[in-house]
Design a protein around this nucleic acid. Sequence first.
DNA 1: GCAGCCCCTGAACAGTCATTCATATTGGCC
DNA 2: GGCCAATATGAATGACTGTTCAGGGGCTGC
Lengths: 221, 221
Amino acid sequence: MTRRKPAREEVEETPVVERESRAPVEAIRAAAFAQFAERGYPVVTVRDIMKACGLTQGALYNHFKSKDELLHDIITSTQSELERQCRQAVAGAGDDPRAKLAAFVRIYVMRHCRLRIEALVANREIGWLDGERVADIRRSRRAIRDILVSIFVDGVKRGVFEPPQVDGRNDLKAIAMALLDQCTHVSMWYGPGGDLTEEQMAKLYADMALRMVGAQPSRPA
Amino acid sequence: MTRRKPAREEVEETPVVERESRAPVEAIRAAAFAQFAERGYPVVTVRDIMKACGLTQGALYNHFKSKDELLHDIITSTQSELERQCRQAVAGAGDDPRAKLAAFVRIYVMRHCRLRIEALVANREIGWLDGERVADIRRSRRAIRDILVSIFVDGVKRGVFEPPQVDGRNDLKAIAMALLDQCTHVSMWYGPGGDLTEEQMAKLYADMALRMVGAQPSRPA
DNA sequence: GCAGCCCCTGAACAGTCATTCATATTGGCC
DNA sequence: GGCCAATATGAATGACTGTTCAGGGGCTGC
């Protein structure tokens, strides 16, 4: 909500990170995340970001080719780490589609609660990247969706999922999109001061996901 | 994706709406919706909007106090109409919480598919409004969420909903948020060329909503 | 103590922007 | 025909933008 218009107003929120604390490129990344999340990419100026790490405008270009490349850099790193974690969670969850789905949702929601700033920027600011740069982000998102779809396909084939049908047909892609929208946007409203902890959020969302696809109760092991 | 940066590029997408067709203020609203949805509020210039309706920059200020007020105007009108439709749908759905929930989701998803441009702008661009203007929008959103919450409360009290619990307690607010996130963001990816019609989307999402809250099968009427 | 390198500075550039205003143009009404 | 209010024009204003670059520190290894 402080994502404000032309009206300058002494940006300093992040109260100037120590210049010595870490490599300047890391300080820039952190400041950029904070400012983009707070006020949105197009209204955050290069001067704002650099002031927040105690440098001046020009210094940005010793570390990044452009403001665009900075955005692309922080988004891709976040996105590829997300994809990696999702794959890892699913791979480590055994063979049961129910366990795979639950593991996926747990890690996905947990991450979007904990790293809500990064998630928010990665999800809200892609549109400002140019066509080429936006392509691999979208590819990664589709890949994540397809992980879900293939868990669904497997579950349906084995009879452990009974997802809602439209006119007698399954549309597992739409269900995956719905589930991802739900899980992604916790980063827009979850705050650590709320009623639920990250773990509780993860559990709640995993339960809802299993219900959405009509997961059948496990046979007693 | 054409939400582009400084690079000018002869905006004309909406191929200049006829000047006579409707009151200029309506033409401006329509052009603003289209442009904001396509490229995002901060990078759409007053010149862009006015050119798209065959006028010049200055003319905007005969109809709106500022670019900000224009955004606020189109968002509030969309938002209050959404709230009205939701209340109406719930009120007309009879007494059963399951029917109320289904009616709510149906109308909400249908609207977000059909008026996806307006929904997209209303949901993505609020952040650019100043504090006062953003307040009543957020109030309306909370009101919509509370409609859902009270349906849930009623359903639980009557034993027709058995929502997932965390540590033995219900958090119906979180479930409502999850459901709204899911339904709202169809406007980000649904296209009329896809696999499902608006009606099919509405039905699918209503089914998922009922499953999420553990709706018990209706007794045969 | 001196290269050589990495990094930073801050002015300058060439653009962009929302908004204002004096000056037209319009269309309805007497 | 003449008048008035509503509306459109487009140049001008003052401010802000991302990016470049000449000039300068302050390290390193010798």
